[in-house]
Design a protein around this nucleic acid. Sequence first.
DNA 1: AGCCTATGCGAAC
DNA 2: TTCGCCTAGGCTG
Length: 282
Amino acid sequence: MPEGHTLHRLADELTATFAGRVVRAGSPQGRFAESAALVDGQVLRGAEAWGKHLFAEFPGERFVHVHLGLYGRFDVHTGAADVPAPVGQVRLRLVAAGDAGWSYADLRGATTCELLTLAGRDAVVARSGPDPLREDADPARAWERIRRSRAPIGGLLMDQSVLAGVGNVYRAEVLFRHRVDPMRPGSSLRRGQWQAMWEDLVVLMQEGVLTGRIDTVRPEHLPEAMGRPPRRDDHGGEVYVYRRTGQPCHVCGARIRTTELQGRNLFWCPRCQRTFRSRALQ
DNA sequence: AGCCTATGCGAAC
DNA sequence: TTCGCCTAGGCTG
C-alpha cells in the first residue's frame, strides 16, 4: 500500500480527524512509549507528507515521524462508540474525543516511528527529492539528477533522493505509459520526456490520493473497453505491467516481463518499451 | 493452518 | 549483500 499517495492521503485523514484537538498518545506495544509520553495530552497541530514520510506536528516544534516501510499500516477510525483494546503490535495509538464518538489511529509494522525536532524533520526533507504530490515541488531538481546519471531510469525513479513518493507500482506504470525502456540511462532521456513523465505522475498520484488505489490504465484499455475481466489484486487498481509477468500487454499483446533491479521486481513490456537502439540490435 | 509474497528502506554483516 | 520490521492478503493443502 504505501507509495506516496498513501502517505498524503493519511496526512489528510489525520489532519481532518485530529488537528486542533487534544490527543492522547500511547504505545501499547511499548517501543514508542517514552516518546509518546512527550506528546500525550497535547494538541495535534496537523499532519503532512513528503514523499513516503509522514510528519504529525505537536506544539514546541515536535514531530512524530512515521515511515510505513513495506507493510506498515496506520489505520484511522472515526466516530467509534468506544476505543477497543489494541489488536496485535500497536506501536503508536492516537485517541481523541470527536464530535460524534471517539477517534483513534493505530500504527503497526512501520519501519520508522520516532519523535523529531524541527531540525530533524528538515533533515529528512533535505534528503528527499521533489514530491509530485506537493505544491512546492520543483521537478527541475529531479531532472538535474537524472540527466547527469548513467544509472537506469527504472532505478532513478525509485531513488527517493531523486524523486520522492514514487514506488514500484508508479515506477513501472509511468515508464510504460511513456514507452520508456527501464534500463535506459537517465542521461539518455530528453528533457521533454522527463517533463511529460513528471506531469503524468502528478495526475496519477493525485488520483491515487483521492481513491486510495493506483489506477494507471487509460480509458480505451480498461477491462470494460477491451472485454477482459477486471483485475483482482490487493491494491485494487487497474495497471498495465505491475505484477503482470507472462500476461499479454493490454496494448500490443506481448508477454509482460520481469527482472530484478536493485533487489526489487521490475515489470515492463519488451515491445512497447523497447528503445530504438535495442530495436536495431535485435 | 501454514506458506509465500509485497507498493521500502535503514542497519547490520 | 542480507536482514528486520512482524502486517495481511492470497494461495496451497
